[in-house]
Computed example of a mutant assay.
Amino acid sequence: MGIAKFCKATIGGLGAALLLTAGLATTAFAAETVTTMATTAPLNLRDASNINGNVMDVMPQGTSVAVHGMTNDGWYHVTYQDKEGFCYYQFLNFEGSQDGTVRDGKTTTMYATDPLNVREQPNTDSRILGSLKVDEGVPVVAKHDGWFTVTFNGVEAYCYGAYLGFGQGGYKADPPSEATDSTMNQLTTTAPLNVRTEPSTNGTIIGSFSAGTTVNVLDVAGDWYQVKFGNTTGYVYSLYLS
């Protein structure tokens, strides 16, 4: 399992393969190229780059945090109020909101960590405008739901953010994460499973997964997992995920 590699240029255009990431890349991130991003929802700060990392703090929505880099499976290495830890990529944006608005107007150069398709729209069905080579830089101005808005050959375009990093040569967390297995971010349903608006049986059912479905897990709330469900998020009971 592992986070879906939606933009891999080398796999049939769509690149909808799954990647098992054995660990982080080997080159340290250059501290002087740190960028600032903003939380788009209350966001857990964890001591490891996976959903089982201990929650050290909760960063309120709209909080600016210093970002040192991003692991290959989508965890940002950040500093918040002198605490250094990790948070999941989906709820950090470039000083903006979930609609892609950039408050500070800055452009951040990011670098492809794998061959990466550049698309006309933020989805895998969109036309491919070109591709980035490993370590090739691209200006990034915003992010929404995992897709980064970039400037490519003078036009606005999109890349899947899990395969863009802040430095050339890859990224290594410093201090390193104790748990780097990207399979922590995806689990499989062992039975038909309801998706609810809240981590409780009192939450409204917004849909369901069939047995054997691979589910993208975003966070842990007691005995419940927050998961990706279509274009939104919801909660499922952890007993039926493995």
Rank of each mutant, 00 (worst) to 15 (best):
Q186N: 15
T197N: 11
G203F: 05
L187K: 12
P192Y: 08
Y171R: 10
T180Y: 03
T190M: 12
P192W: 08
P199K: 04
T189S: 11
E198F: 13
T188Y: 07
N185P: 02
V195F: 11
Q168T: 07
T190R: 14
F209Y: 01
T201S: 01
P176K: 09
T204A: 15
P199Q: 10
A173P: 01
N194M: 14
T189D: 05
S210I: 12
S208D: 11
A179E: 02
T183H: 03
M184I: 03
P192T: 04
A179M: 11
L164S: 00
A173L: 03
N202W: 07
T183Y: 01
T189P: 12
P199T: 08
T180F: 01
T183P: 00
V195C: 07
Q186R: 14
G203N: 06
N202M: 12
L193G: 03
T189C: 10
F209G: 05
A173D: 07
Y171V: 04
S182V: 05
S208M: 14
G203E: 01
S177N: 02
S182P: 02
Q186V: 15
A191K: 15
G170P: 04
A179L: 11
D181E: 11
T201D: 01
R196D: 11
Y163V: 06
P176A: 10
G170I: 02
